[in-house]
Amino acid sequence: MLPFQIVDGLLMKPGRLFYASMMSFWMVMLSMLALVFTYAPQGGVQLAGLALFASPGLIDPMLVAMTAIGFSASAQSVLLGLVGGFNLGAAGLVLFSMLFWVFGQEAEQRDARPLAEGAAACGAVAAAAVVMISFAGGAAGFLLLLQLLALGGLGLMVLAVGRPDPVEVSGHDEAAAGIDDVIADHVATHAAFSAQIASLSRREFQT
């Protein structure tokens, strides 16, 4: 599909613009969560002269909880890496689901829901790990709330992707009605023509 056809399709179907913006938001949020879990314990990362995720405020409750539980430094790194990896995997699945649902045809749109469900499953695993560590360590911070919020957003996205586009459904109904009208007219014309042929044949037989 050419780029101008994609843009034209989006402009003709405003519902898809909503899905694209919604999925993009959750994709960015999940990516940010993955980066927080990955780089915040290391003191942040330098990018183009900017210090990103340098403040440990978000990740501190998780570190305190894991220390209280008794995890070693290496175990903490592995757990945080796994949670960040699940969040990053969820973000990638959201991206592909968005491409299939927003830019794809009917066949590709059917494949968008399994991808969205996979993203929700990855988000659920990450949220479960954060909940268990935070509650077991007795230190539930703002990062836990963000992780649960992301999981709720993924659940809503799965419900939205599974719902047919009303614009497309109405368009299909109108097209089906138009085809039925054409078939009915063709049948009526064919019947009238057959009746005329039968009448002429009867007259010739009588003469």
Rank of each mutant, 00 (worst) to 15 (best):
F103T: 14
Q105E: 15
E106P: 03
A107P: 06
Q109W: 08
Q109T: 10
R110M: 10
R110K: 15
D111E: 11
D111G: 01
D111W: 10
D111P: 04
A112F: 01
R113L: 15
R113C: 02
R113Q: 14
R113E: 13
A116N: 04
A116P: 04
A116V: 06
A116D: 05
A116G: 13
A116L: 10
A116M: 15
A116Q: 07
E117F: 01
G118D: 11
A119K: 06
A121P: 08
A121D: 13
A121R: 11
C122V: 00
C122I: 00
G123H: 04
A124D: 09
A124G: 07
A124T: 06
A124S: 10
V125K: 09
A126N: 07
A127M: 08
A127E: 10
A128N: 02
A129F: 12
V130Y: 09
V131N: 04
I133M: 09
I133V: 15
I133A: 13
I133G: 05
S134D: 09
S134F: 01
F135V: 10
F135A: 11
F135I: 05
A136Y: 03
G137W: 02
G137T: 05
G137M: 03
G137Q: 03
G138T: 07
A139G: 00
A140H: 00
A140D: 01
G141P: 05
L143Y: 03
L144Y: 04
L146V: 03
L146H: 04
L146I: 01
Q147L: 01
Q147A: 09
L148I: 11
L148S: 08
L149H: 13
L149G: 07
L149Y: 02
A150C: 11
A150W: 01
A150S: 13
L151T: 02
G153Y: 01
L154R: 03
L154N: 00
G155C: 07
L156W: 07
L156E: 05
M157A: 10
V158F: 02
L159H: 05
A160Q: 13
A160R: 08
A160I: 03
A160E: 06
G162F: 02
G162N: 02
G162Q: 02
R163E: 07
P164M: 05
P164V: 01
D165R: 08
D165G: 09
D165H: 03
V167S: 07
V167A: 14
V167L: 13
S170G: 06
S170T: 12
G171E: 14
G171S: 09
H172M: 12
H172G: 14
H172I: 12
H172Y: 12
H172N: 13
E174D: 13
A176V: 15
A176K: 11
A177R: 15
A177T: 12
A177Q: 13
G178E: 15
G178L: 12
G178Y: 11
I179R: 15
I179A: 14
D180T: 14
